[in-house]
Amino acid sequence: MLRRTLLRTGAVAAAGSLWQGAARASSGPGPYGPLGPPGPDGLALPPGFTGRVVARSGRRVAGLSWHAAPDGGACFPDGDGWIYVSNSEIPLFGGASALRFAADGTIRDAYRVLSGTDLNCAGGATPWGTWLSCEEAPRGRVFECDPYGGRAARPRLAMGRFKHEAAACDPVREVVYLTEDQPDGCFYRFRPRYWGDLTEGALEVLTTSGAWKPVPHPAAPLNATRHQVPDARHFDGGEGCHYLGDVCYFTTKGDNRVWAYHADTGRLDVLYDAAAPLSGVDNITAAASGELFVAEDGGDMEINVITPGRTAEPFLRLEGHGGSEITGPAFSPDGGRLYFSSQRGRTGGAGGLDGHTFEVTGPFHR
């Protein structure tokens, strides 16, 4: 596949347009080398990497029946081990579950952290060690969950009622960025009254001028949040988002773009805008090196890596999972393991009853 530069950059102008430049890079090897042949579970990896399935929908793992349609996820430190939390994107009976790992990677426990919610798609981790699980449903909610299983999950209604996709916390400006999965969705930020407590606060939307304006009625009893501010900037199907080093990266599936919002300056860049190698942009995370790992919803069923040098190349591929999508990429706290799921697995069933959750171990750049 061709290695492509990330095409467009520019600031948000008063008219809402982007100054756009373009560049191309020649073909060549990716930062981790070519992909090898797929293993028994269909996973193709670069040299030096190994993978395994750690959970499958409907099958027991450490005493828990793993949920259907695994989606967004994140990792949390747990003594000398770690925890991986995963959402369940099914209607009415969704929620989230957790896998607890020992230092050697053994699964020690599995348990639910959220139950009885609707279409839990993506979300995001907080700096204070909780998981924000987002409902991708009309008038969807954000639930704050305890990944360690000690406290009940709570809805954070001040964060708005809309088709939530993902969340990313900015500890410098003390805000939470939020994406909306609608063809005319918006990019929001939530300013809690007290950082670390999401019970109260102000929901704001990015406008075409680059300013943030308050959403008058976050509960949206009559008018959708995305329609309440006349000059709100609209995005074509907001998906994953991830904050790293004063930048919130987020994806939009309708136009297959990866965006970069520079929180320190207010500049908005289109970081990736090409048909290949990355197609069907969805969940996004980052390695300690600053490399972005972007999952595909369909496409070639790949996770692509976008380097700081502004090139994109496949990092892994799933063969035989053509009716599925890749979800929930997240690194273990030490950066040595990457977790993700094939939401519908090999069978591709609409209910996600064959979901596979994977772990990849190897020499990730740190």
Rank of each mutant, 00 (worst) to 15 (best):
H356M: 15
D104R: 03
A122H: 11
G28H: 09
R193Q: 12
W195K: 07
N120R: 12
D255L: 10
A137N: 12
P308F: 06
A287Q: 01
P70Y: 00
M1W: 00
D264K: 09
T106H: 01
T117C: 14
V247R: 10
F340V: 01
C186H: 04
F293M: 02
T361K: 15
L2N: 08
F331H: 07
V360T: 07
E204H: 04
E165W: 03
V113Q: 01
H356T: 04
G349W: 05
S133T: 13
A122P: 10
L157M: 03
M159R: 15
E144C: 03
P40C: 09
T311H: 13
I326E: 10
H234A: 03
R193C: 11
G322T: 13
A22S: 11
F358G: 09
G129S: 08
L271K: 05
C121E: 13
F76M: 10
G298K: 00
R267N: 14
G36Q: 00
E180N: 12
L198D: 08
S332M: 00
F331L: 05
A219C: 03
G123E: 07
R310M: 14
P138M: 07
F143T: 12
V85S: 06
A158N: 11
F162L: 14
W131L: 00
I90A: 05
S342D: 05
S279D: 13
R189E: 13
G140V: 08
A23C: 06
C134L: 13
D118Y: 07
Y261H: 13
S26L: 12
R141I: 04
Y84M: 13
W131E: 00
G349E: 11
R193A: 12
E204M: 07
V176D: 06
R310P: 01
V53W: 08
R257Q: 05
E204A: 02
T126Q: 01
L206G: 02
G28R: 07
L206N: 01
D181A: 03
F101C: 09
T327V: 08
R59E: 15
L222I: 00
V305R: 07
I303W: 08
L198F: 15
L278I: 04
A68Y: 03
A15S: 15
P314V: 13
P308H: 06
F340Y: 05
A224R: 12
R257P: 02
R226W: 15
T106M: 02
I326V: 06
G123H: 06
K163C: 09
A137V: 14
